[in-house]
């Protein structure tokens, strides 16, 4: 019995690490840039397909793909904000209006990216096998790739947190999240910071996609599910809070793992129920004010 519990908990942590990473990216994009990026999952999918392609066609190690797919997606996100979202921000009268129109624009991006993926990679499920050797962890057996994934997810998360907390740029980002107008007055180039945040969000999505592709099958339509999970985690942790996203990710991962153990087909429904209850009881999330 105890073995089972440990097993379920560790599975939850493994899942939670990925969820946290996905959520940090979304949180950054919404919390600072005010874009609820519903196409976040598509960027994850791109990261995953990129890794799959590099591995299958060029025999490139997935862990090396991290430094290929991540920066490419960062540039894509940065460019997207510099063009699309910047001009939306200019034409919107208020932040509320911008949130609405940018959400719709993201729906457009979702359709565009997903269908480009379908036409270039096909609609069927792809996968590859990397580091799938079993590892014995306190009696429970896990695939090595899962543990590597968890380690990288946590490592990336901590690095990013330190970046936000310690560096000049990180402080500018946090200032912009608190109060864009005041940050602008203090000499922060706000448009640049917002674009960087969007880029970092895409970077996180890319990392998550690379790591996911090591453990799970890849599919052109996989994005929306991860977007939804990311939204749930972000709301759970409090919009815009990086530690909140991490805590929320692990909580959701563990809950998901428990529910899957009892009844696999209900795990997404369980996420929704948590999400809906949370929105009703404390819409600002566990780390929100």
């Amino acid at each position: 019995m105890i073995m089972k519990i440990v097993d379920v908990l560790i599975c939850g942590l493994l899942l939670g690490g990925i969820y946290a990473l996905i959520a940090v990216g979304l949180s950054l994009q919404y919390g600072v840039a005010r874009v609820l990026n519903i196409s976040h999952g598509e960027l994850i999918m791109l990261g995953a397909f990129g890794t799959w392609s590099l591995y299958t066609f060029f025999d490139i190690n997935p862990l090396i793909s991290l430094v290929i797919c991540g920066p490419v997606l960062f540039l894509a996100g940065f460019a997207l904000h510099k063009t699309l979202f910047k001009s939306l921000l200019k034409s919107s009268g208020s932040i509320g209006a911008f949130e609405g129109s940018s959400l719709l624009a993201c729906f457009g991006l979702l359709f565009i990216i997903q269908n480009i993926a379908i036409t270039s990679w096909g609609a069927d499920i792809k996968g590859y096998s990397y580091l799938s050797v079993p590892v014995n962890l306190g009696g429970a057996i896990f695939a090595a790739n899962r543990l590597v994934t968890l380690a990288f997810a946590v490592g990336i998360g901590i690095t990013f947190y330190l970046f936000l907390a310690r560096t000049r740029l990180g402080k500018a980002i946090r200032a912009a999240a608190q109060d864009p107008a005041a940050a602008g007055l203090m000499g922060v180039n706000i448009n640049h910071v917002l674009a960087l945040c969007f880029g970092f969000g895409a970077l996180m999505a890319g990392f998550a996609g690379v790591l996911l592709s090591m453990c799970y099958p890849v599919k052109a339509t996989m994005g929306l599910e991860y977007t939804i999970i990311a939204i749930i985690v972000v709301v759970l942790g409090g919009l815009g809070s990086i530690p909140g996203s991490f805590i929320g990710g692990f909580i959701l991962g563990i809950i998901g793992s428990i529910v899957s153990y009892i009844e696999p087909s209900l795990s997404l429904a369980a996420y929704y129920i948590i999400f809906i209850l949370l929105l009703l009881v404390k819409p600002t999330g566990i780390m929100g004010k």
């Binding site: 939306l88 129109s101 480009i116 036409t119």
Partner: peptide, 12 residues
Amino acid sequence: LIFGIILVIAIL
């Protein structure tokens, strides 16, 4: 795909 492009252009 075309839908998505029209959508983005319409919003812009």
